[in-house]
Design a protein around this nucleic acid. Structure first.
Lengths: 129, 129
DNA sequence: TATTTGCTACGAAATGTTTCGTATATCAAT
DNA sequence: ATTGATATACGAAACATTTCGTAGCAAATA
């Protein structure tokens, strides 16, 4: 019943969440090393951002040891849904069908993904009639 | 060949673009009246934002008369693709299939939309083999 | 013509986000 | 114990975005 009362991550915050979603958890150093490989950025920048995210409730952390360990508090799935909803409302007139078709146009989709989508569609068949 | 060299709209800018996409074009007053119905906001705020958007190339305008008329310079479709790509990269590991499935979960999709999607999928059939 | 109304221009405050320098503490190694 | 490497905390600058007040001009109206 509550769900969407969560803070929505900014661009930078999203980059950090992505790392933590993949790893499950991580230290500032670990997260920073991934980010550093993608873009020019300083260690304390990553640190500060992760601290702010913790204040906001996007992350939690274990501070029992000198090196803190961070955990995502917003799930990837909830985040995906949040942004999908936003796009839906803001750009696709609320039509999920249009969004899906837009996504299909967007990138090359391989045979397996297409099959998976077709399979997935079956579950939306009228179950009774 | 150039395409994506366009500036990406912010949240507020998107709201304005939406109005203009629907109407095709409009004055500040017209846009503002729509926005005002959605949220508390001042006229000069809308005006200023539209002026900035014009500087950025997101809008153009006809200034021949006292009351300027604004036109979107970024198409809805390009904007959709831009944000879909962003979500794809940032949240779905680049997998359009996952994004599509996430979107299918997201909102109730009616029978017609489902059919349209299935129909749409056909065009991705192996065209040659 | 004088007043009111409605428009644009523009500066700048308010707010939000990102970046980084510096202080300080802890641990490891000499 | 001293030094060096590595942590966190934190303030504040640098940027970006949003909001709004005010000035000035043009059109409509009294």
């Amino acid at each position: 019943m509550k769900k969407d009362r969560q803070y929505q991550p900014t661009e930078s915050e999203l980059e950090i969440l992505q790392v933590l979603w993949k790893k499950g958890s991580g230290t500032v150093r670990e997260v920073h090393e991934v980010l550093e490989a993608q873009k020019e950025t300083g260690y304390t920048t990553t640190l500060k951002t992760m601290q702010i995210m913790t204040e906001k409730g996007l992350l939690s952390r274990d501070t029992r040891h000198r090196t803190h360990i961070y955990f995502p508090e917003l799930s990837r799935e909830d985040c995906q849904q949040h942004f999908l909803n936003k796009m839906l409302d803001g750009l696709f007139d609320g039509s999920a069908g249009r969004l899906v078709m837009g996504a299909l146009d967007n990138k090359k989709i391989n045979r397996e993904e297409l099959d998976a989508i077709r399979e997935y569609l079956k579950q939306f068949e009228h179950p009774s009639s």
